[in-house]
């Protein structure tokens, strides 16, 4: 065995959302029932990564109620408003603001009604943990449920609509100059690889992912995106290739199309960086794609660090590395052990 180790880094920036004048919108309705339980009708699809959870946390924070009191109804043209797609790492960044706006308006309705009920100036009131409290004393005056009951009883809304238009104008057609995206995600990864110079096999032995979440609304969910993204990046770099021959798929089975398993993925160290974004909800940015992009470049650079050979084609299969080493040897350029 002739194993050589190397370290490499990869960085990237990624326009969050759509750009190019494509509609980049979010919207949500929020409704509080007479017992204070609240439903958010959010058009954003949850893929399991946690958009519903983010929506819940944003609404809870903005309204001043507990997440347990919130239920999210998601992504149904028959019951939820249009919130754009869950793609482009945009769901938290765009829909988060829409939900924040909806929740803020509902909070104002609650405070207006509470002010009338308590005969107390609205400015002196705040909602905390499901209770309308007097700011100065912190005293709990009335539950949000009782206030919502009054709103319903008087035919008022106890419901609010929030939206957010993140659409950015297209760049110049000749020069591509312009403000292309509302914001960008940022990430740098450090990869450590082992290259077997006899077989060309590359193993990723360590990965550190420094990903800028702006503000991690749910750190475990952000880590889930970082670890899952890097794993997809690892698959792209080392294993996965959809092969067509004459336009006909040769990788029409998972026996031939290789997805990384638990044995292929090292422990991924998540370094969540938080540089707040002025336009994101509570400073948050999208992380799904930023966490995916730097992995393959970091591996490529780590391979160079290990063996002094620059691979310029992906995926980095053992054959490709093996022949690159042979060619370097033939040129007398390979650093032998």
């Amino acid at each position: 065995m002739a194993i050589r180790r190397g370290l490499g880094i990869g960085s990237m920036y990624y326009g969050i959302g759509y750009g190019f004048s494509r509609a980049d919108i979010g919207s949500a309705e929020i409704e509080m029932a007479e017992d204070g339980t609240t439903t958010v009708y959010s058009g954003a699809c949850d893929m399991g990564q946690g958009v519903m959870t983010v929506v819940t946390q944003v609404a809870a924070e903005e309204l001043g109620i507990e997440p347990e009191q919130i239920r999210v109804v998601a992504a149904d043209t028959g019951s939820t408003p249009d919130a754009g797609p869950t793609s482009g790492s945009r769901a938290t960044f765009v829909q988060g603001v829409a939900v924040q706006n909806a929740a803020a308006e509902l909070r104002e309705q609650i405070l207006d009604m509470a002010s009338r009920m308590l005969e107390c100036p609205k400015e002196n009131l705040v909602v905390r943990h499901g209770q309308v409290c007097e700011i100065e004393s912190g005293r709990e005056m009335v539950s949000v449920g009782k206030v919502a009951h009054q709103l319903h009883f008087h035919g008022r809304r106890a419901a609010a609509w929030g939206w957010h238009d993140n659409t950015t104008a297209d760049v110049d057609p000749e020069t591509s100059q312009g403000d292309a995206y509302a914001t960008y995600g940022w990430a740098t990864q450090l990869a450590e690889v082992e290259v077997d110079t006899e077989t060309g096999r590359v193993r990723l032995t360590k990965l550190v992912s420094a990903t800028d979440a702006g503000k991690a609304i749910n750190p475990v969910a952000v880590e889930g995106q970082i670890e899952g993204g890097a794993t997809m990046g690892l698959g792209y770099g080392l294993y996965e290739q959809h092969i067509l021959e004459g336009g006909i798929p040769r990788t029409n089975s998972l026996a031939f199309y290789l997805v990384p398993t638990a044995m292929d993925v090292p422990d991924i160290e998540c370094e969540i960086v938080e540089v707040p974004d002025p336009r994101g909800p509570f400073g948050a940015k999208g992380v799904a794609e930023p966490a995916t992009i730097p992995t393959t470049p970091a591996i490529l650079n780590a391979i160079y660090d290990a063996i002094g050979i620059r691979i310029t084609e992906t995926p980095i299969t053992p054959e490709r590395v093996f022949f690159a080493i042979q060619e370097a040897r033939d040129r007398g350029e390979f650093e032998e052990d």
């Binding site: 591509s176 292309a180 550190v208 370094e271 974004d277 994101g280």
Partner: peptide
Amino acid sequence: TGQLMNEGCGIEATLRRIKDY
């Protein structure tokens, strides 16, 4: 594209985090 970066520009912070690591 000529877009001026604002205070949310985080690349340097991610690089420094890796450097510290």
